[in-house]
C-alpha cells in the first residue's frame, strides 16, 4: 500500500517539484507557490461542486430552520421535508463530501512531497534517494537550496511572519466559507468559535513546521479565498457586495463613516 502511494502520488509530485525547481531558477519558494496554484486549479472540478453546494445550503438556511422548527417533534417528517426541499432546489446534501474526499490524497501527497524534497537532514536526504534514483538530471539538483529571503524553507520561520500570515489567511478563508445569514444561536456560536480557534491552531502549528509548508498553507488559503469570491460573484453580485455579505460589521462601519463624511460636506 505504501509503495503504491509513493509510486502514484509522492513520486510524480517530487519529480514535478524538481522539474519546476530547475525551470524557476532554483527558487523553491516559487516552486511551492506555482505547484500549489496548479494543484488547486487541477482539483477545481472536484472542489467547485462542493463549494457551490455548501453555498447553496447556506442560502437555504432560513428555509431549513423553518422546517426544523415546524417539525421539531417529528424527526421522520422533518427529514422527509428537508429532502424534499433539497430535491426542489436541486442540491445533494452529501454532494460536497465525495469530491473533497477524492482531492484529499492529492493535497496530502503534495504536502508530503514538499516535506521530502526539502530534506536537509542526512536521514531525510537518504529517504529522498529512493525517489530520485535513476534520474541523473534531477540528482544534480540535490540538495535543494532552501534559502528564501530570511527563511530557510526546511525550518520554521524564526521571525513568525509566516505563522501570522497563515493565521490571517485561514481566518479570512473560514469567514468566507461560514454562512453570514443568521442561523440558530447554537450553530452561530460554534461557527464563531471555529472561526477563531482553527486559524489560531494552524498558526501555532506553523510555528513548528518547515516554512516551506507554511508557504503552501498561505498560498492554498489565498487561492481558496479567490475561488470563493468568484463563486459568490457568480450570482451577479459585485466584489463590494460580496465583501459586505462576508463582513457586514466592517461594511456598516465604513458605510456610516462615508455617510458622516458626506453629511459634513
Amino acid at each position: 500500500m505504501g509503495q503504491l502511494w509513493n509510486a502514484f502520488f509522492i513520486q510524480p509530485m517530487i519529480y514535478a517539484s524538481l522539474w519546476l525547481y530547475q525551470l524557476l531558477g532554483h527558487n523553491f519558494a516559487l516552486v511551492i507557490t506555482v505547484l500549489t496554484v496548479i494543484v488547486r486549479l487541477l482539483t477545481l472540478p472536484l472542489t467547485l461542486p462542493a463549494q457551490k453546494s455548501a453555498k447553496k445550503q447556506q442560502e437555504l438556511q432560513p428555509k431549513i430552520q423553518e422546517i426544523q422548527k415546524k417539525y421539531a417533534k417529528d424527526k421522520e417528517r422533518q427529514s422527509q421535508e428537508l429532502m424534499k426541499l433539497y430535491k426542489e432546489e436541486g442540491i445533494n446534501p452529501m454532494g460536497g463530501c465525495l469530491p473533497l474526499l477524492i482531492q484529499l490524497p492529492i493535497i496530502m501527497a503534495f504536502y508530503q512531497s514538499i516535506a521530502k524534497v526539502l530534506a536537509d537532514t542526512p536521514l531525510t536526504l537518504l529517504s529522498l534517494a529512493d525517489f530520485v534514483a535513476g534520474t541523473p538530471s534531477l540528482i544534480s539538483l540535490i540538495p535543494l537550496s532552501s534559502k528564501f529571503f530570511w527563511l530557510n524553507l526546511a525550518r520554521p520561520d524564526q521571525l513568525y511572519v509566516l505563522p501570522i500570515l497563515v493565521t490571517v489567511t485561514s481566518w479570512f478563508q473560514q469567514k468566507m466559507m461560514t454562512p453570514s445569514t443568521p442561523t440558530d444561536p447554537q450553530t452561530a456560536s460554534m461557527n464563531q468559535t471555529m472561526q477563531i480557534t482553527m486559524p489560531l491552531m494552524f498558526g501555532f502549528l506553523t510555528m513548528q513546521w518547515p516554512s516551506g509548508l507554511a508557504i503552501y498553507f498561505v498560498v492554498t488559503n489565498i487561492v481558496s479565498i479567490i475561488i470563493q469570491f468568484i463563486i459568490d460573484m457568480q450570482g451577479g453580485k459585485s466584489f463590494r457586495e460580496v465583501f459586505q455579505t462576508v463582513f457586514p460589521q466592517v461594511a456598516s462601519t465604513t458605510g456610516t463613516q462615508a455617510r458622516r463624511r458626506k453629511g459634513k460636506k
Binding site: P185, Q186, S189, M190, Q192, T193, M194, T197, M198, M201, F204, L205, Q208
Partner: peptide
Amino acid sequence: MVEIVKRKWGLLLTVVVAVLFMS
C-alpha cells in the same frame, strides 16, 4: 444560553488540547 456557552468553551478546550497534544 448556559448550554451554548458550555458548548463553545468545550469546543475551544478540545481544539487547544489537540494543538498541545500535536505539538
